[in-house]
Design a protein around this nucleic acid. Sequence first.
DNA 1: GTGAAAGCGCTAACAC
DNA 2: GTGTTAGCGCTTTCAC
Lengths: 319, 319
Amino acid sequence: MADLARVAGVSAITVSRALRDSPLVNPETRARIREVARQYGYAFNASARNLRLRRSMTVAVVVEMKPTPERQMSGPYPLDLLGGITQQLTSAGYSVLLTSLAGETLPNVQAADGVILLGQGAHEDAMHSVQRWGRPLVVWGAVSRHQSQVVVGSDNFRGGALVAERFLALGRQRPVFLGDPAHGEFAERLEGFNSVLQSRGITALTPAIDNFTVSAGAAVVRQLLQTQPQTDALFAASDLLAIGAIRALIENHRRVPEDVTVVGYDDTPLGATYVPPLSSVHQNFTEAGVLLARKICDLIDGQSVQSATLPTHLVVRST
Amino acid sequence: MADLARVAGVSAITVSRALRDSPLVNPETRARIREVARQYGYAFNASARNLRLRRSMTVAVVVEMKPTPERQMSGPYPLDLLGGITQQLTSAGYSVLLTSLAGETLPNVQAADGVILLGQGAHEDAMHSVQRWGRPLVVWGAVSRHQSQVVVGSDNFRGGALVAERFLALGRQRPVFLGDPAHGEFAERLEGFNSVLQSRGITALTPAIDNFTVSAGAAVVRQLLQTQPQTDALFAASDLLAIGAIRALIENHRRVPEDVTVVGYDDTPLGATYVPPLSSVHQNFTEAGVLLARKICDLIDGQSVQSATLPTHLVVRST
DNA sequence: GTGAAAGCGCTAACAC
DNA sequence: GTGTTAGCGCTTTCAC
């Protein structure tokens, strides 16, 4: 900036102001300075600004990126959230620092002005690690689990309830829930599911499941059909599980949906294009990402911020 | 650091050295300083270090994150790459700055020490935008397209050739390629595909297609079957297209694979769990991400870096 | 093994 | 509308 100032015949601070479009600087002066900057290939130094302003203008986004072919956070889930987050954060002037919880925490990540955590993790362990960073924090996950935190999540309770209502409307009597309630979001879905069922005196079976893959879903359902051959409805906490479940049902000569109704969760392209096309509970991840970004910005600005629950709806297809 | 120095009875520079585990500092001094830092909740200021070192210790990763339900870079593609990149970059001390090409370029992104571009884009437009940033650059895409750039890509030519070989082995006579050659990677696949076919005097049909969704794939194949009812083999440049294609084939009473052989690309969970399970060309995205990260680090360190092609193989399932 | 001095490039505060 | 002064928190260089 000092060099530009010399060339343009002004002082460094005027250059600074001109490049930031400060109204304090004469439009012609600004135009001249910008032109000089362009000519000389001037590159703004963000670190210097960040040092001076005592902020980094970054938000760290913590994602689980374990590279397994059938992963936990499958398909579009994190990428749609990331899309919404990035779009919103970028337009607010913040950069997105992508991080996983593996390995040590880098200085740049520690220096983030705020943190968005995608998924609380089983038993909220991810949340507890990130809290120790002592930065403004917004979490994507189960809203009901944390009064003390700002959490954005979709209405998992209602999602579960919608599925139960459909099962009841179809006259199903022996529903099963597939998912690990150690994850808060899954627990909420189960609670909503059971709350509706119990009004009719029905309780869902909840076989233990610790993995969220197609094959895990298939394995559990194979087992299940041994002991509970009359099962007539399956609510899977993810589309992946649902697809595995359908596979096991077919193997065991159950027709879907005639003999067994199956509903998944997340409404992924994977489920939508499956044959038969999977019924599933839809979440709007992009919108959720935008909201997460808004909240973390507000939190950074010192505003008081509330948790939020996003609406959810059931997409009925062929299962 | 000055405060810590006062408390620990040393100078600021010694604190700096102690916290960086410099061998220059006495182990006991270091232990004392670290303890004081812990007690006082000292937070390292990355911006100050970056200013002084004249590097940002970040690498910008440019991804297409258009939030459409059936997106171009579908499913695990970007996320697996991102996983590999993040893992490797983090262990090298770099943070990952996630960016899309939409909107203006933020100061922090401009200040990145290097850039990884995921996908050249149609007609390499994405590449040209990013080149203007004037930072070290590594691209994921079509290696053959850019001698002047460092490109990491999987062996698309060989991928296409493998599919052609399988079609020939099955005695197929009227193969069709589904994909837009405006994208370099797709063009390479088509070239490999045709190179093998032409050795038997066969030329693939390449109906125009401008979108990479299930419905686009279905639409093209519906059209195709009108004019080319004898089509007996389809090579789709993505699993999404392949699934759409199969849908249209079934609608038109073609059996897969008896009447028409179909092979997709990317070997996504979506394809693998489809019914029928889709045959597809596999790419190892995580490994690719690690390699991209290694190359950008080398480039930043001023080493000379070559483009690289990763091996590819055909996974034969039921189609 | 430790320290003093200097400066990275920017901007807020306060003149004028 | 523009300029002067000062300092953000760190690390390199050179001295001891």
